[in-house]
Structure formats: structure tokens, C-alpha cells
Write a protein that binds this DNA or RNA. Structure first.
Length: 564
RNA sequence: GCACUCGUAGCUCAGCUGGAUAGAGCACCCGCCUUCUAAGCGGGCGGUCUCAGGUUCGAAUCCUGACGGGUGUACCA
């Protein structure tokens, strides 16, 4: 149910009928409960255009709305605020739709094909905390788009090409018979190879030669390279599985996949006169930027800008994407700005193709400093996940009621849910302070709060006999507000879709569940003294709430539990 | 130097398509379990929205500048 858009269109015709045609009509949720459910503040802005008193305009608009059965109250306040209260009966009737598995949320009218590029781990190393945000924000966005009807193509643009592989190959050859054993810890293997690379010039040269061999398709080198990739992918897949992220090998299309196209990309850009030579390198210059985008080095080598351009071309022209989302660290903002601009001017993407950098802030430690990237100080993703699960296990209050296997499952769902929720609930654009205690604390606005509410509802539904799917009757204002919140899910998801902002969903969830918790405390469902009709109504409210929670959490990639 | 970005309660964050006394959680204090899961609920404490100008009937929100933090800035990805 899209309550807001419904109101917007009613408002729009009301506005038109008094001769106003604002370019956008937007109601917002009321800032105070006493103002009603929604408010429209546009009357004040129209005062100049219409050369009328804003209060008068508001009253004119209000008089057109009053007759509409959607509203039970239309009120003009102050200089020209229009406060709207939604008719209780309308909510009662609409709530039934929320009992289905989509919590009453429809698909978008226009559905498009979207590529979401996320995770993109480096294949030479283990995944670490630095990969967490891209992986879970990207997965959430992909889930959300899919849920609303888009055809989503997930792309894992893995870092599987470049110097580090020359290095690994060289080290593998050097260690000979021990190599296979050593590979069981790829991280360690990489470290040793890197150390060799830094200290030994001969080794470094050999590594670079291996890169050339790789790029020119030398069979033996390629074979070795493949074993590294397989090993790494296997590791990444373990992480995805335990995180419940929907990436698999079919989504992998790494840097190496574009290797053969790079030459043509450069050629094409040169022929179109977009690329120019400067200091021996092939570059693209931009008016608003003093640094160019380099697509080919002076020594002939290609760069990640070249790969990215090849990838855009592939995604738009071969995959047919109308929207391409790059879930990548905010530090690459300028890079993507230039790449997108180039892709459009070169015709790799159409003018109306949406190329978006879904930027997110860095992960900082408690003292506000960035995590180290190279020198051993990083937290491995695997360790992080394990600890999240361990901590969750130690916190489960009803632990004695479960057997070992059940406990394990609950700990996993709660621990990983908390880990993801903590990240997703923060506006992705700001830096994210990574704090074990906060992330794994199981209080407040966390996954656990939602999961707990869900389990509470489930407990009631299990106890209750089947309830009738008939129009409920709300017994107080709280129930009416809870219903309205449930019906707001679709508007929330649509806004989160437009802005690619997962935290809008967590904000919504928190409001929804807070309302439910109050309802739960105040309005008994199965207790004595509750009449049949009331009981039935409240069961419908509870069920609809559970659906909204489940749908929202599923989009965030977080599981619910029947019992906790 | 230039560009981008952020600066809201002790801490972590919402709010920023301009609107009516700026909202949460944590922490701290008080109250609520013989009845649907107290991992909960209710109440209290706590803010010159970094500062200074400007636009506007109205600014945490838009613009300019200053200060402070972060990031990026020619052949790494």
C-alpha cells in the first residue's frame, strides 16, 4: 500500500483545482502525533505565486480534501500547515492486504534491468573488514531492487589480475614441493611472497615477467593463476555463505575477464578524440578536474580505469543494464565521476543509463582512525564473523531451553544479523566507527530487537487458534498508528530504492517495532477479558507486523527466528 | 595549493526534497514481571544543531566565508 503517493495524487488534483501547479507535491509524515499522520507544507510556498494569503490557500486546499474518505480529519494550523489524519476505517480495510507474504508491498510499475557491482574482494588475500560494507550494502540493495521487481544482475568484480599474481606465481615456483601445503593458508603465502618481492630484486623482476606471461596467455602460468583464484573464491564463498550473502560463482566476472577488451577500449577512445597522449600516457582530461583519467600507462600497461570502462560497456551493451550501481568506497568518488562521464561521452552507456556510485564511508576504529590495509593489523572477516556468533551465543538468555544444535543456529542468526544490522543502520555515506562492543551489543536499535519482536509475535500466533481474515476493528489510537506504520512499508522501500539507502529500512523497522512493543505491552491479545472481535483484530495486527518485519529483515539479508 | 566530504546531547547516530517546542539508542536516575518471551515497557536527566554572515514569512536543513576532522589529488587497485 502506497499511502503517501495516494495522498500526493489527491493533493495534486486539489492544488490544480485552485489554480496551483507546483512541480512536486510531497506530503511528509507529521512531526508530532498531535498534528495527525501527515502534513503538507506547500501552501506557504505557494503564497507568492498565487499572490494570496498562505492561510487562505491552505484553507482552500483543505476544503477540497475534507470530502475525501481517505481522511478523517483535515486541519489547517498556524500560517498554513495542512494536517491530515487518515481514516481509521480505511486503515482497517487496507491492513488485510498486509497479511500476504510480501506484507502487502507491490512491485514497481516500471521494472528495469539493473547491475549491482559489489563485494569485489582481492583474490590474493583473505577477505577482511574492509570488504564487509560493500558486501552487505550491495547485497541489500540487490535484494531490495529484486523485491520491487527489477531484474537484478549481481556482479562480483573480483581483483584477480595484476602484479600480485605474478608475485604469487613466482613464489609458488620458488617454493616447489612445499607450495601446495603452504597454500592452505593463502594469506600467509601472500605475505611471504610480498616480503620476497620487496627484498629481492631478482624475484621482483621475475614477478613482473609473470604478469606479462599471464596477460599474453601463457598456459602454464595461467594454470597456476587459476588455482590461486579457485582457492580464493572458495574462501570468499565460505564468507558469503556464512553471511547469507547471495553471491556465487555465477556472479563472478573479475578484472581478468576484461583483459582482451582493453586494447579496443583505448583505441576507440583515441579514435573518438576523447583520449589524448600526455607525458607518454594516454589520458582523458576534464574541465572540472586538474588530474586526468589515465587509461594506458607510458609503458603500455592498462589501469583499472580502463577495466572499469570495459566493464561499463559490457554491462550496458551486453547485459542490457539500464541502471548500474557500484557499491564502492567513497574514496573513489572522483574516479567514478570521471569514468561515468567518459562512458557516456564515448557512447559505452546511453545518456539515460543510470550510472551510480553507491558510495560508503570508511570503517574506522574506536579512536577514529582508519583500519590499516596492508600491515597485518586488519581484522579478518572470518574472525569477525566467528566472534560475532560466539558473543551472541553467550548472551542468549534462554540458552538452557535449547539443545546444542538449536543454540548454534540461534547464535548464528543473531550474531550475523547484529553484525549486518549495525552496519546497515548507519547512513552509508558517513564513516562507520567499528566497535566490537557496540556492534555485538544486543541492546537498542539492533537486529536482535527486531528478531525478539518477531519471536514474541510468533509465540502468540502459535498459541492462538486460526484467526479470521476479516476487517479488523482498532480499539485505540495506538492500534491505528501501528496499522498505518505497517502500511507505510511500501513507501519506505520505494524511497530506499530511489536513494539506494538501506538505513531508511532500518529506521522504519525501528519505528515499527517500537510501536509494536508498546502495543504488545498495553493491549493483551490472548489474555482473559479480551473479546473475540478484539482478539481477532489484534491477531491481524500482530501477523501484519510480523510480515512487515520479516520482509524488511529479509531485504537486509537478516533471518528471523520463530523462537529466541 | 586545489577538489570532495563531514562537524547535531558525555558516546554512537537519525533528521538535512527548507516549516510548527531538534529525535533515538547507549550511559546515568526512578518505576513496572501471579496473566501472550522483562533481550521488554513507562518516566526522568541531557543540545547556543562548530562559528560568522546571507537568502527566506520561516534555516540543523539552501548559499558564502572561517575554524576543525577525514579523504582524494598523473601512470597501484
Amino acid at each position: 500500500m502506497q499511502v503517501k503517493s495516494k495522498i500526493n495524487s489527491i493533493l495534486e488534483s486539489a492544488l490544480n483545482s485552485i489554480g496551483a501547479n507546483p512541480k512536486e507535491v510531497i506530503v511528509s509524515e507529521a512531526t508530532k502525533a498531535e498534528f495527525g499522520d501527515f502534513q503538507y507544507n506547500g501552501a506557504m510556498a505557494l503564497a507568492k505565486e498565487l499572490k494570496q494569503n498562505p492561510r487562505k490557500i491552505a484553507e482552500d486546499i483543505a476544503s477540497k480534501l475534507e470530502s475525501n474518505e481517505l481522511f478523517s480529519k483535515v486541519e489547517v494550523a498556524g500560517p498554513g500547515f495542512i494536517n491530515l489524519t487518515i481514516n481509521r476505517e480505511f486503515l482497517e480495510e487496507s491492513l488485510i492486504a498486509s497479511l500476504d507474504s510480501r506484507a502487502g508491498v507491490g512491485k514497481k510499475e516500471e521494472q528495469i534491468r539493473v547491475v549491482v557491482d559489489y563485494s569485489s574482494p582481492n583474490m590474493a588475500k583473505q577477505m577482511h573488514v574492509g570488504h564487509l560494507r560493500s558486501t552487505i550494502i550491495g547485497d541489500t540493495i540487490a535484494n531490495l531492487f529484486e523485491f520491487l521487481g527489477d531484474e537484478v544482475i549481481r556482479q562480483n568484480h573480483i581483483g584477480d589480475w595484476g602484479t600480485q599474481f605474478g608475485m604469487l606465481v613466482a613464489y609458488f615456483e620458488e617454493t616447489g614441493a612445499n607450495a601446495d601445503a603452504k597454500l592452505s593458508d593463502l594469506e600467509q603465502f601472500y605475505k611471504e611472497a610480498k616480503a620476497r618481492f620487496d627484498e629481492n630484486e631478482e624475484f621482483a623482476t621475475k614477478s613482473r615477467q609473470n604478469v606479462v606471461k599471464l596477460q599474453s596467455g601463457d598456459k602454464a602460468t595461467l594454470k597456476l593463476w587459476k588455482t590461486f583464484i579457485e582457492k580464493s573464491l572458495h574462501h570468499a564463498q565460505d564468507i558469503y555463505n556464512s553471511l547469507g550473502v547471495k553471491l556465487d560463482n555465477s556472479h563472478v566476472r573479475g578484472e581478468s575477464a576484461y583483459n582482451d577488451n582493453l586494447e579496443n577500449i583505448v583505441k576507440e577512445l583515441e579514435q573518438r578524440g576523447i583520449a589524448k597522449e600526455s607525458q607518454g600516457a594516454k589520458c582523458l582530461f576534464f574541465e572540472d578536474s586538474e588530474t586526468p583519467l589515465i587509461i594506458q600507462k607510458a609503458d603500455g600497461g592498462y589501469l583499472y580505469a580502463t577495466t572499469d570502462l570495459a566493464a561499463i560497456k559490457f554491462r550496458v551493451q551486453e547485459l542490457g543494464a539500464k541502471r548500474v550501481c557500484y557499491v564502492v568506497d567513497a574514496r573513489q568518488a572522483e574516479h567514478f565521476k570521471q569514468v561515468f562521464k567518459t562512458a557516456k561521452s564515448a557512447g559505452f552507456a546511453n545518456e539515460d543509463t543510470l550510472l551510480e556510485h553507491i558510495a560508503f564511508g570508511m570503517m574506522l576504529d574506536k579512536s577514529g582512525k582508519p583500519f590499516k590495509t596492508r600491515s597485518g593489523g586488519t581484522v579478518k572477516l572470518k574472525e569477525l564473523i566467528d566472534e560475532a556468533v560466539d558473543r551472541a551465543k553467550s548472551v542468549i538468555s534462554r540458552a538452557s531451553e535449547y539443545d546444542e544444535q538449536e543454540l548454534e543456529h540461534i547464535a548464528k542468526v543473531v550474531g550475523i544479523g547484529s553484525l549486518k544490522y549495525a552496519d546497515l543502520s548507519i547512513n552509508r555515506q558517513s564513516n562507520y566507527i567499528f566497535d566490537w562492543d557496540k556492534m555485538l551489543s544486543l541492546d537498542g536499535n539492533t537486529a536482535l530487537y527486531m528478531q525478539y519482536a518477531y519471536a514474541r509475535i510468533n509465540s502468540i500466533l502459535n498459541r492462538a487458534e486460526e484467526f479470521k481474515i476479516v476487517k479488523p476493528t482498532f480499539s485505540d489510537e495506538l492500534e491505528r498508528r501501528l496499522a498505518l506504520k505497517i502500511l507505510n512499508l511500501e513507501d519506505t522501500l520505494n524511497r530506499a530504492y530511489k536513494e539506494a539507502m538501506p538505513h531508511l529500512i532500518t529506521n522504519y523497522l525501528y519505528e515499527l517495532v517500537s510501536l509494536f512493543m508498546r502495543f504488545y505491552e498495553q493491549n493483551p491479545i490472548l489474555k482473559e477479558g479480551v473479546d473475540e472481535e478484539q482478539k481477532n483484530s489484534r491477531l491481524i495486527l500482530a501477523k501484519a507486523t510480523a510480515n512487515a518485519i520479516k520482509v524488511s529483515l529479509n531485504i537486509l539479508g537478516i533471518e528471523v527466528l520463530e523462537r529466541i
